[in-house]
């Protein structure tokens, strides 16, 4: 059937799905997302210390998808017409990808401030999967 994320796989990372919980490498101090396996900076197979990020950051890159979506998001695309996806540099200095919400996805630009908010991500096998999306910070 192609790529597929099982429910147990989804549940293994709920703190990352909801709050982007980072891992600080005990060897080199680098923050990792997701903190899983070797450190992305020093390759050490150490354990990570959990770090709770603020959940805010700046847009580094953005795309607005209009034609085609992963099957998990096809109904969302049909309904909304677009899917905005950003790669955000969290204030802790780590890049994370996420969907835009609560805005016209064409409006936010590189450098704009965004914050995480819990949303319905998609539904599969009759179970709704929740996680974080990004919305513009209202000053």
């Amino acid at each position: 059937m192609g790529a597929y994320i099982s429910l147990p796989t989804w549940w293994q990372n709920l703190e990352q799905r909801y709050r982007f919980v980072l891992g600080e490498c005990l060897d080199c101090g680098a923050y990792n997302f997701p903190a899983d396996g070797a450190c992305s900076v020093c390759s050490s197979l150490t354990t990570f210390r959990e770090v709770e990020p603020e959940g805010t950051g700046e847009i580094v890159t953005k795309t607005v998808m209009e034609e085609g979506a992963p099957p998990e998001f096809e109904s969302y695309l049909q309904r909304e017409g677009t899917i905005g996806v950003v790669i955000v540099e969290l204030d802790e200095g780590v890049l994370v990808p996420g969907m835009l919400t609560d805005c016209d996805p064409y409006a936010p630009e590189r450098g704009d401030r965004v914050e995480r908010t819990i949303r319905r991500i998609y539904e599969q096998e009759g179970i709704v999967r929740y996680g974080a999306k990004f919305r513009p910070v209202v000053e």
Partner: peptide
């Protein structure tokens, strides 16, 4: 993480 944020392959290269 990439696909689960809604990205197609065109989406990745769009970034």
């Amino acid at each position: 993480w990439g696909r689960m944020s809604g990205m197609t392959f065109a989406g990745v290269y769009a970034h």
